[in-house]
C-alpha cells in the first residue's frame, strides 16, 4: 500500500499579501509568525482591511497575541480552541463579498478544518492561501469507524475511537480535513508493529 508521496497531500506555501477588499486571517500556534512575516512586505494600510483570528494553543505565552495586535488589524480575536473559532469564520464568510482574501497559517489540523468551512461558503480551494507552521502532528480519520484522532505523531497510530492500529497515509481529504488511517494488520491481526514517532 502506497503510504508516502501521494498526490492528495496538500502543498503549502508562504502567505503573500494579495490584492483584495478584505483580508481574513486565521492562524494557530506558530502560524502567527507567518502573518508577522507577511506584514514585513505588506503595503501600508494593508491591515486596515484585515481581520485576524488567532488560537495560541501550544504557542501561548510567547507574545504572539501582542505582536499580532500591534499590526492594528480592523478586527482582532483570540480564540480558546479551533472548534470555538470556526463558527466565527463561517459567519464572517457568509457576510463577505467577492474580493475577500483568505489566509490560513499554522497546524495542518486547523488549516484543514478552516478549509472545510471556507469551501462550504462557496470559496474555491485554489483561492485560499495556506502556510503550514509548527507541529507536523496530523489529524487522522480512521477509514473504518470514521472517528477523527487529533495530533497524531506516531506511525502506526491507535484510533482513539475504535482502537484499531492505523497506518497513516499521505492520502488527504480536503473535505474532511484529515489524513487517512487504514488498519495496519487487517490481513494478520495482532502483527502491528510498535508505534514510532513519525510526525513531530
Amino acid at each position: 500500500m502506497l503510504v508516502e508521496g501521494i498526490k492528495s497531500r496538500p502543498i503549502y506555501s508562504p502567505l503573500v499579501a494579495r490584492t483584495g477588499t478584505l483580508h481574513l486571517f486565521m492562524a494557530d500556534g506558530e502560524g502567527a509568525q507567518a502573518i508577522l512575516d507577511l506584514a514585513t512586505t505588506a503595503s501600508p494600510g494593508f491591515f486596515e482591511r484585515a481581520h485576524i483570528c488567532y488560537i495560541p494553543r501550544a504557542a501561548a505565552g510567547r507574545g504572539f497575541e501582542s505582536a499580532l495586535q500591534a499590526l492594528n488589524p480592523a478586527a482582532f480575536y483570540v480564540g480558546p480552541t479551533v472548534a470555538a473559532a470556526l463558527p466565527r469564520l463561517a459567519v464572517e464568510l457568509a457576510n463577505a463579498h467577492m474580493g475577500t482574501q483568505i489566509y490560513l497559517a499554522g497546524t495542518e489540523g486547523m488549516i484543514g478544518q478552516a478549509m472545510v468551512v471556507a469551501l462550504a461558503a462557496g470559496v474555491d480551494q485554489a483561492s485560499i492561501q495556506r502556510e503550514h507552521r509548527g507541529s507536523e502532528a496530523r489529524r487522522v480519520q480512521c477509514v473504518h469507524c470514521k472517528g477523527i484522532t487529533e495530533d497524531v505523531t506516531t506511525q502506526p497510530a491507535k484510533c482513539a475511537h475504535c482502537g484499531l492500529m492505523l497506518l497513516v497515509r499521505d492520502h488527504y481529504s480536503r473535505r474532511i480535513g484529515a489524513f487517512q488511517g487504514v488498519c495496519v494488520d487487517a490481513e494478520m491481526p495482532g502483527t502491528a508493529p510498535d508505534p514510532e514517532e513519525a510526525f513531530r
Binding site: 464568510l93 457568509a94 463577505a96 463579498h97 467577492m98 474580493g99 470559496v123 474555491d124
Partner: peptide, 28 residues
C-alpha cells in the same frame, strides 16, 4: 456576495476589461 461566479462573452476588448478589472479587485 462571496461565492459569486462571473461569465463574460463579447468583443475581446470588453472581455479583457471585465476580467482584468475583476482580477484587480481580488476575484480569483
Amino acid at each position: 456576495p462571496l461565492g459569486t461566479h462571473l461569465y463574460v462573452c463579447g468583443p475581446g476588448g470588453m472581455m479583457n476589461w471585465v476580467l482584468s478589472t475583476a482580477e484587480g479587485l481580488g476575484w480569483p
